[in-house]
């Protein structure tokens, strides 16, 4: 399997995966009611205010995969998104927060394969990687060879991160070997590009299946596991996130490899973003609040964070139209 350093890895050894251990996979049981109770208390047990809140929201900005995945995308709106990625916050806000030295940008820009060259060009010199959704996104039902070729093509076009979708059927019927082989092949196709495996949790029905699929994806070499395409009926939720990040924790404790987590879909408010950061800090610790281990997949979240940061600075409720649109 090709391995190598990556700009996004921060020097952390990349997950090499491990042989599929079915006993371990099948032993996983997630109690939904217990997970939901825990998920409900995380936002109730923790909160951040004032400077702390501003710092956490700024952190959320830097953990964002700014995304556009629409049928009507054109080079024009992709370039606009990339411009926003370079400068996600109004300069006067950056100034007022006194964080200019941090030169905050988003973590990545996420597009369909067709717009990888556009985005690469638009982000040239910024250091911001381009992520491409791939492998027959969002349903993942194209011919296997075609899906693997899609990865090759996106990597060749300059994508440094590949967000793949799995064949949900493998997880739903419990064909874990098939899922393992599929993700393994995707990983191999990625080369040095980072692999984010989208489980489409909204279609996996139970938290136990989500957790098992998470482990299989990590065993097969995923750099990130990700909840959703944004196209399923149910996207990222806190209970689903708990089921996934707890598998990340176990995997790290057992293998030493730190796998990243990316909730995506439906995360629109600063409060939601804070809840996810709280969940990561509570369940996995401070280390996981870095771009190589955590991302938000989001398109409209940034605007709400900008408004909240402005309110912190001015003390007044803010309006969206006063912030440059992505």
């Amino acid at each position: 399997m090709p391995d190598g350093p990556s700009a996004a890895s921060n020097g952390v050894p990349r997950n090499t995966g491990e042989p599929l251990d079915l006993d371990r996979v099948l032993a996983i049981r997630v109690n939904r009611s217990a997970a939901e109770r825990r998920a409900a208390t995380i936002p109730a047990r923790r909160t951040v205010k004032k400077e702390w809140q501003a710092a956490w929201l700024l952190r959320a900005v830097t953990l964002m995969d700014l995304t556009t995945l629409a049928g009507d995308d054109t080079p024009g709106n992709v370039r606009r998104l990339c411009a926003k990625a370079r400068q996600p916050l109004r300069p006067d806000l950056v100034e007022a927060l006194r964080v200019g030295a941090l030169a905050p940008t988003v973590a990545a820009v996420c597009v369909y394969h067709r717009y990888v060259p556009t985005a690469v060009e638009a982000l040239a010199g910024s250091g911001i990687p381009v992520a491409a959704v791939s492998t027959g996104f969002p349903a993942g039902l194209s011919p296997f060879g075609q899906r693997v070729d899609e990865i090759h093509a996106s990597v060749a076009a300059g994508a440094r991160e590949i967000d793949v979708v799995i064949t949900r059927a493998h997880a739903l019927i419990g064909d874990w070997a098939a899922l393992y082989d599929e993700v393994r092949a995707f990983r191999s196709a990625c080369g040095t590009a980072h692999l984010k495996v989208i489980l489409a949790t909204g279609e996996l029905a139970t938290l136990t299946t989500v957790a098992r699929a998470s482990l299989v994806a990590m065993m097969a070499g995923a750099d990130f596991i990700k909840t959703s395409t944004g196209k399923e009926g149910v996207n990222a939720t806190l209970p689903v996130s708990l089921a996934m990040v707890r598998q990340i924790r176990e995997y790290a404790e057992r293998t030493g490899f730190r796998v990243g987590y990316k909730p995506a879909g439906g995360i629109r408010t600063a409060r939601q973003a804070t809840d996810y950061l709280l969940l990561m800090k509570e369940e996995l610790g401070r280390d996981w609040l870095e771009p190589h281990l955590f991302r938000f997949g989001a398109s409209s979240l940034l605007t709400d964070i900008e408004r909240q940061l402005e309110m912190f600075v001015t003390g007044r409720y803010a309006a969206a139209h006063r912030h440059p649109m992505p």
Partner: peptide, 17 residues
């Protein structure tokens, strides 16, 4: 009082009375 930039690094919890 810690600055936003410092808190951005530590990601600590602050008081929330």
């Amino acid at each position: 009082m810690a600055t936003v930039a410092e808190l951005f690094e530590t990601m600590e919890y602050g008081p929330a009375p």
